[in-house]
Design a protein around this nucleic acid. Structure first.
Length: 481
DNA sequence: TGAAATGTTGGGGCG
DNA sequence: ACGCCCCAACATTTC
């Protein structure tokens, strides 16, 4: 292929290692133009939310720095992809564009016609898989249809040939003699005006380096205890790789490789078990992308049609109490406050908090999905959609409608010593373990000694769980087909 | 990747 | 010694 230069159009593949488009471009021995286009309108209505924009800002900064170390640069532009790409093609004389594929419906609606038009204009366009072990159309059941249940889906994935080894980081990326103009990352105004992001800086290191460091920490210190540790929100028992994965700072192939290497080398029973369970979670991510691709309406519509006219209630005040972590249920409030403070919530607590909104407060999962979309640094359309529909019982492989989490029992089971609640709901910190998940049941003396005044320093429960549960079961029973 | 209600079993206190 | 009851522990079923 003869070419005068290649644009590598970066989106959510903000890394250099195991990057098929970069690797392919570098091989051509022609100038490479790494380009990021900020075009939130083209992702409508799923433009990155506030927390995601924070992450994106720092991830782009990290990538720009890394590119410089490799003799290259990151070109930043803003606007619709088509005109921006054409402008850069003509400015540089490049005739080729590479990008990594994404699979969300609104993304495909831009990418597919764009690819056709650019090819029609005699440009070379190639897209690559950089973000999934198995692309959505490669896994089907025996009758050729997409899977809707996780376990057979994952079995089918495991029966596929092993993923290829990750690609190495290109040593040097060929630069043009003259760099085209670029905006500054600051010009994109991705950071918040009011500083709600203070806590984010202590929690995260966006960028490829941060991702690799986190992967190493996980393999060395966390994976062996992952099977049970992942359910203890008070401990560092999860991988915390989700935002890195969402922005493509790390690939699932790299994770697969590192996890297998660690399990093979150390080969303790816990590590092997941990590896298996963790890869299963990576499998859920694959499953989510599979489902979104095959059922593109699911971000706004229940997969199971009998839920379309479900009798959701709505109460703006109650919704706000949930968002702010003021429901009076400590484990729920701790989760919602962790989310607000750090842009992330432990997965066990996501399930509890989500169940509370959907079943105890009987509000539509779409409200929860919207809030998570704006506040999570790992907000991902596929994962968010699957998670919320799963909780609501209207999605694939969904929790049966009668599975309603009891926030007190969940708290006692997974945060037995109250570490997590005390961290995020400090006004309850002095309650004894036995009362920490149900302050309303504590004696007057205990509350007094702990400096807790219900209704004043900490809210009364906004609903009674038992009554709320009965109401949900009734509403759900009427929906059952 | 639940919880609550209901059913069963078995040990121990007691008359 | 025996039956009875209580109840915790565990299992099953139902929502």
């Amino acid at each position: 292929m003869s070419t005068n230069g290649i644009i590598v159009w970066l989106r959510r593949d903000l890394r250099l290692a195991d990057h098929p488009a970069f690797s392919a471009a570098v091989k051509q021995q022609v100038p490479v133009y790494p380009l990021y286009i900020w075009s939130p309108d083209e992702d409508h209505p799923w433009a990155p939310g506030g927390a995601s924009r924070w992450w994106l800002h720092h991830s782009l900064s990290a990538l720009a720095a890394t590119l410089r170390q490799h003799g290259s640069r990151l070109i930043i532009r803003q606007g619709k992809a088509d005109p921006v790409l054409r402008a850069l093609l003509s400015e540089t004389g490049a005739d080729t564009i590479y990008w990594s594929r994404h699979y969300e419906p609104q993304r495909l609606a831009v990418d597919n016609p764009l690819k056709a038009e650019l090819r029609g204009a005699e440009y070379t366009v190639k897209s690559f898989n950089a973000s999934l072990l198995h692309e959505p159309w490669t896994i089907t059941n025996k009758s050729g249809a997409p899977y809707q249940v996780f376990t057979p889906f994952w079995k089918a994935c495991l029966a596929q040939p092993e993923p290829k080894a990750p690609l190495p980081t290109p040593r040097k990326i060929p630069a043009p003699s003259k760099w085209p103009d670029s905006m500054a990352i600051d010009d994109l105004k991705l950071l918040p005006d009011i500083p709600w992001d203070k806590g984010f800086y202590d929690s995260w290191t966006p960028g490829e380096q941060g991702a690799q460091a986190q992967l190493a920490t996980f393999c060395d210190d966390i994976m062996a205890r992952y099977k049970d540790g992942r359910d203890q929100p008070g401990q560092a028992g999860t991988s915390r790789l989700s935002p890195h994965l969402h922005f493509g700072e790390i690939s699932p192939r790299q994770i697969y490789d590192a996890v297998h290497t660690a399990a093979h080398y150390q080969s303790t029973k816990g590590l092997v078990k941990g590896a298996e369970h963790f890869l299963r979670e990576v499998g859920w991510r694959e499953f989510a992308h599979h489902l979104l691709f095959h059922f593109p309406q699911t971000p706004v519509q229940p997969l199971r049609p009998e839920f379309e006219d479900f009798p959701w209630t709505h109460d703006a005040k109650l919704l706000r109490s949930w968002q702010r972590g003021e429901t009076g249920y400590p484990i729920v409030d701790a989760g919602m406050r962790e989310l607000w403070a750090t842009g992330w919530m432990h997965n066990r607590v996501r399930m509890i908090a989500a169940s509370f909104l959907v079943k105890d407060l009987l509000m539509s999962w779409t409200h929860g999905a919207a809030w998570f979309w704006d506040t999570l640094v790992d907000a991902d359309l596929a994962n968010n959609t699957l998670g919320w529909q799963w909780t609501a019982g209207c999605g694939a492989d969904a929790a049966p409608y009668f599975r309603i989490f009891n926030p007190v029992l969940q708290g006692k089971k997974f945060d037995a010593d109250g570490t997590y609640v005390r961290r995020w709901v400090p006004e309850l910190a002095h309650l004894p373990d036995k009362d920490i998940h149900s302050p309303w049941a504590a004696s007057a003396d205990t509350l007094h000694d702990a400096n807790v005044t219900l209704g004043k320093t900490y809210p009364h429960p906004v609903v009674d769980h038992k009554a709320a549960r009965d109401r949900a079961l009734e509403a759900l029973a009427s929906t059952k087909s």
